[in-house]
Amino acid sequence: MADTATPAQAGSGETRRDFLYLAAGAMGAVGVGAVAWPLIDSMNPSAEVLALASTEVDLSPIEVGQRITVTWRGNPVFIDHRTQEQIQQAEAVPLDDLPDPQADDARVQQPEWLIVIGVCTHLGCVPLGQKTGQSRGEFGGWFCPCHGSHYDTSGRIRKGPAPLNLPVPPYEFTGDTSIVIG
């Protein structure tokens, strides 16, 4: 065929064929992608998992200096009723000393209540320090036993392999002594 066609005809024929080839291929790729997406997205958190996304906590029974753990989205959340000493300690740290610089007042809504997600930002272990007798690390906050990360009284990373501070979950005070997390 190509032998008998003039160069001009062959050229235009090939161009049109190339276009059809590319267009069909592109449509096929779009179609496969469109069908694949529902399958991929089905693996993301489902509606009932998302519906569990808020937890109410009554803070009134927590004494000064006491820490409790609540569950939010399956993860532990540390609630620390901080003493004045702990608050001053957290506020006194110069930001230059921090691997992930963040001022203490940016991490709390009321200074006496520190609320952080209790999952080490290294590889996801639960740090120690919630129960009496457990190690609180070198900075009086929390200590992760898995790979040795130390957190201070504001839940900020101070030493060890973890790259970030313990994250603060979204929460709001619904009264003087009650909060909703999430």
């Binding site: 998992v49 989205r73 996801g124």
Partner: peptide
Amino acid sequence: VTWLWGGFTVDNPTLNR
């Protein structure tokens, strides 16, 4: 990671998949 877990931590959806 959230996609792998199907949630916010290793949980029932993770075990199932």
